[in-house]
């Protein structure tokens, strides 16, 4: 354990956030096999687009690229298989700590409820839960920071850029219209 920097982020932007080059990280083999399987499915799917109909068929480039994916994924899987497992790391602590699982679940839940509940309620709940969980500060602070951040985001995207996030249960369009009428009244 001492050998590995607990920070795991060596400052490069795009490289491995941890692990050692010649050892297999927990779950790495499963991931490599998953990629191999997925690539094979995609290759089969690409073949289904137009088969070997013509060089110019819409399936030509997809087949070529997915074939490359299968080959490279197989090479990676083989190499990973041959590497010894890094015994200093565990899946639970180094790859998928509880915080990450909690957030992954939060994000998926966000996606699921976005359409039914609408952007404002879901985002408010998400921010409050997330900030409280991570920061463990007082409720007043949590609520203040989350709602302020949400308000700014909403103003920029909804009012300035007219991005219509799903309104859900909130009568957003009516609110905006009322806001505009208010401005209108003020201006005249």
């Amino acid at each position: 354990m001492q050998k590995i920097d607990p920070d795991h982020h060596d400052g490069t932007s795009d490289a491995t956030p941890g692990g050692e080059a010649d050892k297999r990280r927990p779950g790495e083999l499963a991931f490599a096999l998953f990629l191999l399987g997925a690539s094979a499915i995609l290759l089969w799917n690409a073949y289904g687009i137009a088969g070997f109909e013509a060089l110019s068929s819409p399936g030509a480039i997809p087949m070529a690229t997915t074939a490359v994916m299968v080959v490279t994924a197989a090479m990676v899987a083989l190499k990973t298989l041959r590497m010894p497992l890094d015994s200093t790391e565990t899946l639970r602590r180094d790859i998928l700590p509880l915080t990450v699982i909690v957030f992954a679940v939060l994000l998926v839940a966000y996606g699921l409820f976005l359409r039914t509940l609408g952007f404002l309620p879901v985002s408010a709940i998400f921010l409050i839960v997330a900030v409280k969980y991570l920061g463990r500060r007082s409720w007043g602070w949590t609520l203040g920071v989350s709602l302020a951040a949400l308000a700014i985001t909403w103003l920029i995207f909804r009012i300035v850029f007219s991005v219509l996030m799903p309104a859900g249960i909130v009568p957003e369009a009516e609110m905006v219209q009322a806001l505009r009428s208010l401005f209108q009244g003020g201006a005249q």
Binding site: I156, I159, V160, E174, V176, R180, S181, F183, Q184, A187
Partner: peptide, 24 residues
């Protein structure tokens, strides 16, 4: 910018009427 944007948008919106269109 925000104020300008809201104000300019408000200019294009007419009187709020009870009938259609009630919202954007």
């Amino acid at each position: 910018i925000l104020f300008g944007a809201v104000a300019a948008l408000a200019l294009t919106a007419g009187f709020a009427a009870a009938e259609y269109p009630e919202k954007e």
